[in-house]
Design a protein around this nucleic acid. Structure first.
Length: 273
DNA sequence: GTTGAGCGTT
């Protein structure tokens, strides 16, 4: 949804979509708009978000009215450090309709790479994996296939950001937790961190600069440390009398607690499983 | 509270 109040894409008649990658997860359209608007007429700024959590996916789409301005922004803002992270600005290759677009023009020629003047280092991308949405059907088969592929690569460059999005994206149902438990090689660059000191502004500002949304933080944004020891004790009601015992995890159908640590150790612990 | 390759919404 565009932040201009209009629903969906405003007008892609003569707009040129730019893809902004490598932005922080806290960077909002409000932060990108003034930055890109300085180089040209920005028609729309859209940041795909997660449909569940609502967090930014780490990239944004900026639409310019003119190609020359877009090109200028690409050359100027590409590689610019925003919020302590270097962003990558380039022309969008794919459109909302999954069509090949080049500088805003729908083109079917895949000969060119998208009009990118500055060729960035072609990092190995593993997006070659099947994007078929039939996973809901042959989920098991795909799972095995993925597992085998993982063993081949022995390491996955993917991280949680993509994993959770894929789950929501395809069916919303969690495919398999075992997959992430298979072999995960931690990236040596995990400690890579850039200083940031504008987190407060990120919170205050909303994604839509057109429609200023009220800050989420309640007036009592402070931790409001209650003088009470615990918030559990300040609610005399609502507490199940059975829960005052932390050992109450499972209750026997007879109504008796079977969680007793077996005070009398019989010859056999239990016939569980 | 986390994450970091990539291509988009009423």
């Amino acid at each position: 949804m565009s932040h201009f109040g209009k629903s969906g894409p405003p007008d892609i008649r003569d707009t040129y979509s730019l893809l902004v990658l490598n932005i922080t997860f806290r960077t909002t359209a409000d932060d990108l708009f003034p930055l890109f608007d300085k180089y040209g007429k920005v028609v729309d700024v859209f940041i795909p978000r997660d449909r569940r959590t609502g967090d930014s996916r780490g990239f944004a789409f900026v639409r310019y009215k003119y190609a020359d301005e877009a090109q200028k922004a690409v050359e100027k803002l590409d590689g610019r450090v925003v919020d302590g992270r270097e962003i990558m600005v380039q022309f969008a290759k794919y459109g909302p309709n999954a069509e090949r677009i080049q500088k805003g023009r729908i083109v079917e020629t895949t000969s060119k790479e998208g009009g990118r003047s500055r060729s960035r280092s072609p990092r190995p991308r593993y997006r070659d994996e099947h994007r078929d949405r039939d996973r809901g059907r042959d989920r098991d088969r795909d799972r095995d296939r993925d597992r085998d592929r993982d063993r081949d690569y022995r390491k996955r460059s993917r991280s949680r950001s993509r994993d959770r999005y894929d789950r929501d994206r395809y069916s919303g149902r969690e495919r398999d937790h075992r997959r992430r438990s298979i072999s995960r090689s931690p990236s040596p660059d995990h400690h890579k961190h850039s200083g940031r000191g504008r987190s407060d502004e990120r919170r205050s500002r909303s994604q839509s600069y057109g429609s200023a949304s009220p800050a989420r933080h309640s007036p009592n944004s402070k931790r409001a440390p209650s003088p009470h020891k615990t918030h559990r004790g300040e609610s005399p009601v609502g507490r199940n009398p059975n829960e005052h015992s932390p050992a109450l995890k499972s209750v026997s159908p007879h109504g008796r607690r079977s969680v007793s640590p077996s005070p009398s150790p019989r010859r056999s612990n239990a016939h569980e499983a």
